[in-house]
Design a binder for these strands. Structure first.
Lengths: 143, 143
DNA sequence: AATAATTTTTAGTTATATCTAACTTTTTAC
DNA sequence: GTAAAAAGTTAGATATAACTAAAAATTATT
């Protein structure tokens, strides 16, 4: 229960999420790889990791990979789930994958629970959008 | 043509948009009202206005209301149009008005042109979402 | 095993964006 | 028309989040 209710900054959420993704992809989250993935320099990563340590979300032996605590794992998974939901949502709207990924990455930090919940509803398979047929009927209607 | 291509920060976009809204609503945008509307203190507004002046987006006689330059008018209208589009979009998804307004206010600064364009498409009246009938048929089907 | 290369960390700088406190100008009220 | 109140400004502090430069530790090469 510790400091789980300390609202993370957007930046720290990004770092936490990236640690999670790198650990899933390569088993280990190195400072160098986090920096490359987020397009920042290594000292920026070092400072962020220090913050996340203070918040009890990650641990790190000096000069080695970053690990997630239980609370960190949960927080990272939350962010990642929002990312996945939003990316899928944008793709459903017709946005290209690269842009959907980029925009989801911004949206994941700012949307309220209510909006996220409505987007979840929208993504349920029973919600079907009718488009083309109403715009440009391709076949002449019978009479 | 001046410095129109200086990408504004999210914060400066908010101030510019608020100047525009207050001028439309009350004819004048006072420091005090901008501060109240954005929930910041007056010195924060003063600094922001100084920045916007440097960028050639607003003018201000000392100790009086803030005016928009032509470039400022255009930039503010852009932000406001995004706001209106996004708020309507969220409401269409079922989000309450207050939350739609709040979330639109964050989204308006971060979404790519492509995503905004797809959201515009979605909002065209010919796009109709079919929901309830597929979830819970209220009438027994014939046969 | 010594040296070179890489990785990580530390220290210090810069920019943005907020704040409080204090000062100035303008407006309002008597 | 002066005194009080309100509005605006200036100055200085704090926090976040990035950077460069340089030091320290680890890993790789020969």
């Amino acid at each position: 229960m510790e400091n789980e209710h300390t609202k993370l900054t957007q930046s720290l959420e990004d770092y936490l999420e990236m640690v999670h993704m790198l650990r899933m992809a390569h088993g280990i989250a190195r400072v160098k790889d986090i920096a490359a993935a987020l397009s920042v320099k290594m000292p920026s990563v070092a400072k962020a990791i220090l913050e996340l340590k203070k918040l009890g979300l990650v641990t790190q032996e000096p000069y080695s990979g970053v690990e997630l605590t239980e609370a960190g794992e949960k927080a990272a998974a939350d962010v990642l789930n929002r990312h996945i939901l939003l990316k899928g949502f944008l793709i459903r709207l017709g946005v290209s994958e690269a842009i959907a990924d980029k925009d989801a990455c911004c949206m994941e930090h700012i949307l309220s629970a209510e909006t996220l919940s409505k987007i979840e509803d929208f993504m349920k398979p029973s919600n079907i959008t009718v488009t083309a047929s109403l715009k440009k009927p391709k076949v002449a209607r019978s009479k």
